[in-house]
Structure formats: C-alpha cells, structure tokens
Amino acid sequence: MKVVALYKWARDPEAATVRAGGVVDWGNAKMVAGDDDHAVIEVAKTLAEGGELVGLTLGDGDAAWAVARGVDVAYSVADAPYLADEATTAAIMAAAVKHIGGVDVVVIGDAEQQHPAVPGLLAGLLGWPALSAVGSASADGAKVTVERKVVGNIQTVSAGTPVVLGVAAAGEEAKPPGMMQMLQARKKPVTTLSLADLGVAADQGVTSAGTALPELEGAKMLEGSPAEVAAALVAALRSDGVL
C-alpha cells in the first residue's frame, strides 16, 4: 500500500503564553510533533510494509523527525501557516495528498484535544471515509483492519481503501530514534511543495475577533480549619447535586 503519514502540522499549545487580558503570544513557535504523531508513524509503517511510506508535514518543520522513524519519501508544504480554520488546514493537506497521488491510506493524529475536526475534514475533502480513535491497524490485501477504542469498548473495523485513519496514541513513544539515526535522516532529501504548487490558498473562513480570559476564572476559595473547609466543601457538592 501507499501510505501517507501526516505529522508536525500544528503548534504546541504549551508554547503559547497568555498575557494580561487574555492576549495570546505564540512567540515564533513552529509546527511540532503532536502527541499522536509517533503513533501515526507506527501505524503507517505497519500498513506500508512492502509498499511505500510517504511522510507529509506542514510548515518548515524538520522532516528528519519522520525519516529517522522510517519514512521512505518526505514531503513538506513549507509555506503552510498554522491556521485556526481547520477546514483550510485540511484543504492544504488534501491538495498535497492528491499531488502525491495513488495514495491508499492517509494516517494522521487524531488530535482530539486541539484540532479534532481535521481528520474528518480531510477525508470529506478527499471524498474518502474516515475512522478516528484508531489504536492500531493492519493491511489485509486492499483492505485495512483497525482496532480502536470507542466509549469503553475495543472495536475492530474493516475498511476498504482509500481511507483516512485518525490515530490516538496510547502513551509516550516507546523508543525514540537515537542521535545517529537522526543525523543520517538529515541527509535524506525532502521534496518541498508550496501552496502555489498545490493550487490552494491559506484563506480562512473565520476571522478572530480576539481572545479573552475565561469568564469563570478562579475557584470559590473555601477558608477555615481543615474540619470547616471539609464540611463547607461537602455541603457545596451536595447542594450542586454531584455527590
């Protein structure tokens, strides 16, 4: 199978600083590997066995990250900016997947916490189905079989290709590549694409009217002796109907 692994397509929310009044300062934060990205490469590698594994990143992130983890061919849409409109991000990805061509499976981080609509949008724009919350996958001829966790159940789903798989990592990466692998990976060529090459624009369908601190900032602080605060807390939780 020809499999595209999408990685490093968002910024790390922890790179942002929230200033007075809720103003967000991103500094010059770059696209970084997301929490799910190492699992993306793992799943993509399994599916691409005997085929081709293509890495695709947005922005000027370091492609060696993926090459050192086993990607055969690396593409980057170097001038793709970080966008709030997930539909535009997905449109850039879809254009790149079409440009790469002949792709059977796109594997992308599930990104439930930050950009949860992107995998579904990407599939919608490609006209393919998508499955999210995927933990692992195997190839079976022209089909893929995925295992995923949905509402406390483990579900095995068989899917035809082409298909988009949103992968949720179960934890930290077990064995990151070493320094030697990273150095060797840097020697591999990366094909740089531009938005113009792909015929897409980074125009967003939303404009930000600004950021603010959440209204309900701060807890109701309970004060007194340990016995007093404990009694006050239990009384408050009972009156909220949560005990």
């Binding site: 997930e86 535009t88 997905a90 949860p116 995998p119 579904g120 999210s132 949103g166 369908g205 939303v206």
Partner: peptide
Amino acid sequence: SSAAAARTLLGAAAAALGAATVS
C-alpha cells in the same frame, strides 16, 4: 461533539458545505 464518530461526520458535512471549521 468531540465523540469520534460525530466529529468525523461533521468533517464530511463541513467539507461538502464548504464550511470553515473551528473547535
């Protein structure tokens, strides 16, 4: 919602509608 199936269907519908999408 952010339920896996719901947001996947949202993506399919939003892509067809040409809707901008935020989370």
